[in-house]
Simulated scan of single mutants.
Amino acid sequence: MTETRSFANAYERDQTAPLPSSYMMKFYFDELPEVIIQQSDILKGVSINVGDFLFIMSEDVVADPELPSGDFVLALHHTKLYDGRSLYAIAKYDFNLLAEHETERWDEDFLFILYIGVGYLVLILMALWFYSYRVGKKSAALVDWAEQISTDNLSSERPDFHFNEYNRVATCLEQSLKRNAALMEREKKFLSHASHELRTPIAIIRANMEILERMDIPESALGSLSRVERASTNMQLITETLLWLGRKNETAPAEYQVNLPQLLQQLIDDHTYLIQGECVEVIHDYETAPDEMLPATPLMIVLNNLIRNAFQYTHKGWIKVTYQSGTIIVENYDMDLVNDREVVSFGLGLELTQKVCSRLHWNLDINYSDGGVKAALQLPVS
């Protein structure tokens, strides 16, 4: 650039100024010269814009590397003189002219740059590893805290996970558990209050039923009186179930010797009225069931709900109650439910039964099908 500017200034003062030339650099007017390497003009067809540089390496233009040509670099520059003429400057750098210590310096500079690049890459990898390690550690801490948090320890202080996103996730989880705890508390209060409120009218109904039974009433009213009595019995059982679920006392229920065949037969007989006039076949196979020490009250609540649910939602089909290896199976199949796709529930009985079994940690497996429900209760035998 300095040589080009010096000649441009001299040419502007005197257009007859000769083109400068040296061992490494030469100048040319208007067009590029011929540069013959191995009998080939390496600048043939080369174009360069005004103000640009062009570098040509020897290995890019030498057709046969085995022929002697020397390692070189051509540096070309194109500029415009004040009168519009083109001026080309060509410098040829021959690597064979470099001394050994000069090439060693180039190698040292290259190694220095290489070391810097490798060191920078190592620092980046260490930073990424440290960040991943820290994120993984905080993620594990968040998972551990989420597994331990429950409605019983919501009052404890939430740890700081040092990441805003993790703290927000923990806050959302904590708030969700608090809302669920509030909903559960309201549900328990509602069940308790509703159950207590229902006990009084049920007691009045049953007391008046006893009075009516002692009176002489016409036979035409006996059917209605029997239906009222059965309805009040079911209401009483549901109310007792709700009260038992609403209790905060977690003491285990008392166990008694239970005759399973007699209990199952009694519950089936109590609910036979639900299928009177219906085309329903009742199948039972529990005669071999042994007498066991069982929590009698919750067991009767669960079995009563399962059997009543099967009888209540079967109008054309069959009901099967069986005992197999410590498991009582209550299954119903109704052709009307197969054809009626709008049936989406099987009553309050199953929901209450699941809550009772969940509280007592009993194994109750309920499978829904197009035509009914199959419930299998594993007896909680000690």
Rank of each mutant, 00 (worst) to 15 (best):
Leu67Ser: 04
Arg85Cys: 02
Met25Gln: 14
Ala181Arg: 00
Asn249Asp: 15
Leu191Glu: 11
Arg308Ser: 11
Asp370Val: 08
Pro18Ala: 10
Tyr286Leu: 09
Tyr93Phe: 15
Asp107Pro: 00
Arg13Ile: 05
Asn180Ile: 02
Tyr131Phe: 09
Leu260Thr: 02
Val338Met: 06
Asp83Cys: 02
Asp71Leu: 05
Val343Tyr: 04
Ile319Phe: 01
Leu350Lys: 02
Asp30Thr: 10
Glu157Ala: 15
Gln257Gly: 05
Pro298Arg: 07
Leu81Ile: 03
Glu292Met: 13
Glu351Gly: 06
Arg5Gln: 13
Ile205Pro: 00
Val330Glu: 03
Arg359Glu: 07
Leu225Phe: 10
Ile301Ser: 11
Ala127Gln: 10
Lys44Gly: 06
Cys172His: 12
Ala203Phe: 09
Asn332Tyr: 01
Glu147Trp: 09
Leu123Ile: 15
Ala221Asp: 13
Leu121His: 10
Lys374Leu: 12
Pro68Cys: 03
Tyr120Leu: 15
Arg158Trp: 00
Gly317Glu: 01
Pro295Tyr: 09
Ala194Gly: 11
Asp144Thr: 11
Ser232Gly: 14
Ser21Trp: 02
Arg186Ile: 07
Ser155Ala: 07
Arg227Asp: 13
Tyr313Ala: 05
Thr272Ala: 07
Ser155Asn: 03
His271Thr: 06
Gln276Trp: 12
Glu187Asn: 14
Gln148Trp: 02
Tyr166Trp: 12
Asp285Tyr: 01
Gln354Asn: 10
Gln39Asp: 15
Ile268Asn: 01
Tyr120His: 06
Ala127Val: 08
Arg158Cys: 04
